[in-house]
């Protein structure tokens, strides 16, 4: 009896300890991942950004803050262009995606999943190939330019490729699913009874949309715009394939610094400035939209 009680208590202690450890054990793989693939590279990048030297003579750590000053003074045009292109692309993606997500959520019926599959279908083709396809579509001899010239939207020697519009269109296209999916999720969750209630309280359809549907879908708008804007700001494929150096974004600069010019410190400093800029933009945006309203 005593032995049973003793071993039972022991088992209880072990169980209790396991229970306390369980959350940490569950967290461990994620934490390990973050440390290995986020914290360590960030530390490495941070030290690199403060080094000086070249590939031939080697890099030495020297608190070279001038890398940051140079990054901003030399490349502020590309920084601003990145924010501008990403901002415009995000806005267009929102305007295109909202009706689409709305329609799938409220009118999709039993085809909902098929429509969602169609939205993410382009992801089955690699990013590079998709963007190359746009190069073909927008090419000077291509059908789009031909039609636009025929109807005099473009001049006889007007082009689409190598313009800001082409780059922005490419970014919009490539990031559209990131906008559609969160919007769809937030719209799909809205209880149809709430719209009945709004109609019951004399709200016409447009008014119900403005006062009920739209506010309740703001978490989706917030998530979608961030998921689009943040990667779009750092993108370089679209500008490279659909634009010219006149359309180059900060991603192109970083890419060439890292891979062609092997100016690692400068590239690292540029990356940190970009990160800071995005962080500030996101914080301002969060403040603007209000987290309290989002959590409803």
């Amino acid at each position: 009896m005593a032995a049973v009680g003793h071993s039972g208590r022991l088992a209880g202690v072990v169980r209790g300890r396991r229970r306390r450890l369980a959350p940490y054990l569950l967290l461990a793989p994620g934490m390990a991942w973050l440390v290995v693939f986020f914290i360590v590279p960030m530390y490495y990048l941070a030290t690199t950004s403060l080094q000086h030297g070249s590939l031939e003579i080697g890099y030495t750590f020297s608190w070279a803050w001038s890398n940051y000053a140079d990054a901003i003074t030399t490349y502020h045009t590309q920084f601003l262009r990145s924010l501008e292109y990403a901002g415009i692309a995000t806005a267009i993606a929102l305007v295109v995606s909202y009706p689409l997500a709305y329609w799938i959520a409220f009118r999709g019926g039993r085809w909902k999943n098929l429509f969602l599959l169609l939205v993410i279908a382009p992801f089955f083709v690699t990013y590079l190939i998709r963007t190359l396809a746009w190069e073909t579509i927008l090419a000077d001899g291509g059908p789009v330019v031909g039609i636009l010239r025929d109807i005099h939207v473009l001049g006889p020697d007007g082009r689409l490729l190598a313009t800001s519009s082409a780059v922005i269109a490419g970014i919009t296209y490539n990031f559209l699913p990131f906008m559609v999916l969160p919007l769809y999720v937030s719209l799909e969750q809205i209880d149809a009874r709430l719209l009945d209630a709004a109609h019951d309280l004399y709200a016409s359809r447009p008014w119900s949309f403005l006062r009920v549907t739209l506010p309740l879908s703001l978490p989706g708008v917030f998530a979608g715009t961030l998921l689009t804007f943040i990667p779009a700001t750092g993108d370089f494929i679209n500008a490279q394939l659909l634009g010219t150096p006149q359309q180059y974004m900060i991603g192109n600069v970083i890419q060439s610094k890292f891979l062609q010019l092997t100016d690692y410190p400068q590239a690292a400093a540029l990356s940190f400035v970009l990160m800071a800029a995005i962080l500030v933009a996101v914080l301002a945006y969060t403040r603007l939209l209000g987290t309290e309203r989002l959590t409803g």
């Binding site: 009874r193 009945d196 209630a197 309203r293």
Partner: peptide, 10 residues
């Protein structure tokens, strides 16, 4: 007055 009340959560 709806069965689920349908109050506007926001």
């Amino acid at each position: 007055v709806f069965q689920s009340y349908a109050l506007f959560p926001h």
